[in-house]
């Protein structure tokens, strides 16, 4: 775990200095929210309509921003062959996987922290159940990232990785997107923790299942 944390801190340090991923993630999420706010401009202020719009807009934005973050999660490692230097360290190779998950998640949470207030501002909307929403966003994003980082490792050395990653990722994250959107919708309409328990259970099982499987498979994906 210490080595995974070390990899995560190294990734964040590198990212905060170059802002390569952060810039594209923030600009993309801003664009999504802006486009939706323009196209649904007539309904701004009508909270019942916005209630049904929130889950869709937020998760469209989160899903695509996650794809950007996941695709670039190994970009530093490809440069100068650094992945080989990591593989030469005295650690299990799956420590690299956990490290990459932690750094990708941290970046995504930061961007999500930015998107939600921007959404509220653009749509003149006040969120309710913000704590529950944070839990759903946290678990849902973890599900996307746990499977995404494995796929990023598979596609990092392929010529058409940028094209291949979404093709492989999107069908696999459908079981995360559906309960996440449903749970977000319920929270927005004033449901309590008990009401979203089914969706949360599904999300947690997905995260545990994919994290465990991906951790086991990771070693084979980065072998030459």
């Amino acid at each position: 775990m210490f080595k995974s944390l070390n990899i995560c801190l190294k990734d964040l340090q590198s990212e905060f200095r170059s802002k390569k991923k952060l810039n594209s993630m923030i600009i993309f999420s801003l664009l999504v929210v802006l486009i939706f706010s323009i196209s649904f401009g007539n309904f701004i202020g009508k909270s019942s309509f916005i209630d049904s719009l929130v889950p869709g807009v937020l998760w469209v934005s989160f899903t695509f921003v996650s794809t950007i973050a996941i695709f670039q999660s190994f970009s530093d490692e490809i440069e100068n062959g650094c992945i080989n230097a990591l593989k030469l360290c005295p650690a299990q190779w799956n420590a690299i996987y956990t490290g990459k998950i932690l750094s990708t998640l941290t970046l995504l949470y930061l961007v999500q922290l930015f998107i939600i207030p921007i959404f509220a501002l653009m749509f003149n909307y006040s969120f309710q159940g913000i704590f529950l929403l944070a839990v759903v966003v946290l678990v849902g994003t973890s599900g996307i990232v746990s499977v995404g980082v494995l796929l990023a490792a598979i596609t990092m050395n392929t010529r058409s990785g940028e094209l291949l990653l979404p093709v492989l990722l999107f069908p696999l994250i459908v079981p995360v997107i559906i309960p996440s959107v449903l749970a977000t919708g319920k929270i927005i309409s004033g449901s309590t923790f008990v009401d979203i328990l089914d969706e949360l259970r599904l999300l947690v099982v997905y995260v545990i299942m994919f994290y465990t499987t991906s951790r086991l498979l990771f070693e084979w994906t980065i072998q030459d």
């Binding site: 080595k3 070390n6 990899i7 190294k10 590198s14 200095r17 170059s18 530093d76 080989n84 230097a85």
Partner: peptide, 22 residues
């Protein structure tokens, strides 16, 4: 291939790998 992180400084690179080797 140099196996070094371009966005980290010289000492940060060494510190990172040193920590990886406990």
């Amino acid at each position: 291939e140099t196996f070094i992180y371009e966005n980290l400084t010289v000492e940060e690179n060494l510190r990172f790998f040193g920590k990886m080797f406990d």
